[in-house]
Write a protein that binds this DNA or RNA. Sequence first.
RNA 1: GGCGGCAUAGCCAAGCGGUAAGGCAGGAGCCUGCAACGUUCCCAUCCCUCGUUCAAAUCGAGGUGCCGCCUCCA
Length: 532
Amino acid sequence: MAEQANGLRLFNTLQGQVEPFAPLDPDGKRVNMYVCGPTVYDDAHLGHARCYITWDVLYRFLTFLGYDVKYVRNVTDVDDKILNRAKERGETPAELAERNYQSFTEDMAALNVLPPDEEPRATQYIRQMLDGIQVLIAKGAAYATPDGSVYFRVAAKPDYGKLKYATQDTALLKKHLDDLKAGARVEVEEGKESPLDFALWKAVPLEDPNGWESPWPPTQETSKGWGRPGWHMECSAMNHAVFGEQIDIHAGGADLIFPHHENEIAQSEAWTGQQPFSKYWLHNGFVNVSGEKMSKSLGNFSTIKKVLARYDANTIRYFLLTNHYRMPVDFNDEALQAAENWVDKTFGKLKKLNITREELNKVLFKTAAEVKALEQGLNLEDSHFSEFLHLMEVDLNTAQGLAILNRTFTKMQLANAQGDYARAMELFQRVVNMMNVLGFSFESLFEGVSLPAAEIHSLYAELAGHQTNSAEQAPETMLEEIVTMRREAKASKNWAQADAIRKQLTDIGLQILDNKDGTTTVEKDGLEIVRV
RNA sequence: GGCGGCAUAGCCAAGCGGUAAGGCAGGAGCCUGCAACGUUCCCAUCCCUCGUUCAAAUCGAGGUGCCGCCUCCA
């Protein structure tokens, strides 16, 4: 294929195909990106993890490519689910939302997901929603019903359905929408002109504590209206308030394509008269659990906290990145275990390099331009990082990116083993930068280890076979003596004794390794404690 | 009923017209008292059928089998 191999390309749901990415900004620099955030009525689950890790990688990648990204992720804190849950729990919706928002924030941090630049909350934008709705009514794209609700008039937007059906052909869209209406599960709401029309504002009883004053009073009752925003209006209002009339990227889970994002498009474009509301619409695939769709009714709903209790953030990220973000992904123990094995091996080897935080920071690239300058003139075979970038540029092909990462890692190990430290260091730099762009956390490399002093002491006392003042000795010193005792056992070919000591150390979480050069090391979690 | 997606080694999973990435697991060798670590090597012709093409896992048609959306959901 003679396709030009440069530049970021992304799958745009709006066009139904992969297309070159070019921001609206005439300078091509600024990128405004909005991701649909969580409805904070419960703990975040694996679906959220997948979604926000995916867009975290995009955010990191765009930034790395040199774009000036403004990343906004909203928080939906007004919604029927929140109200119902709060009622069950006997707390206010605001308390419930705040608690779950904090929990969500913790989960994201634990997953090493970067915080967005802004996190607007729906309840802070009621005014803007009301303003937008009034504009829509004035333009004939919405109508109030006698109960004081307001609906969007789908008939006023001939290209309604263009996201779901990925076409601008209005005749075709009309046919699709007719089919949709015919097959729709019926839930007729009083006053709607068409079953496709959707709520912008829902009337609630006057002075309901979870309502806001509106300009649409129920006819014949009072002069004051009262209600709550419709399900889709908040995103349109927040985008309008934070970014203005158009944005570059709007992303979220594939389940939001219809009706949520379709309706957002209809509202926003009818409101401002500008289109496209968002130039690129990106969607990540679903999460299944052990082959089944994750859902409450199936009882296989896994929270992030639950999974993090078993697998670390890097494991979850690696697992997700081996799959393409648009494909469905199946969380199951076999796959997670394989990912964990990779993380253990890879980070274990990195840890043996004994790199400090300062040393690591020194070799991390800031921009792709820096890398290009560095790798200029190298062929693709050697310009590992450039190859990595090229693969990532094709709709975020993280699986191929990881393949390059692994190949580079193997080469680094080889150079290291051969004593070519300059080359090893060069490759190390490529490796950690790839990991950095993908959002892996390096924290575990800097964690010290805490030695089980009491256990070491009792083992030492047992082996020494006599009273010692070992309580005053450092655990490291005792370990050295234990190693020496084992060495004596080995020298006299007392293998049983030597193996017993190894077993006892293993039991308290320490690994004893005989090296090729005749030395013996004791490690904990892959980190060398003593070498004798 | 309408619309869409997916089927690649034991498992996970890229590739989407030019002769099968990567990971996990597994096997063999080196190293080793054993083990671990390290390292080298091995491990698929892409659900079926018929087409298009010099060339198909990749395109078309028809099967079969999974799955999703159309209702709140990331």
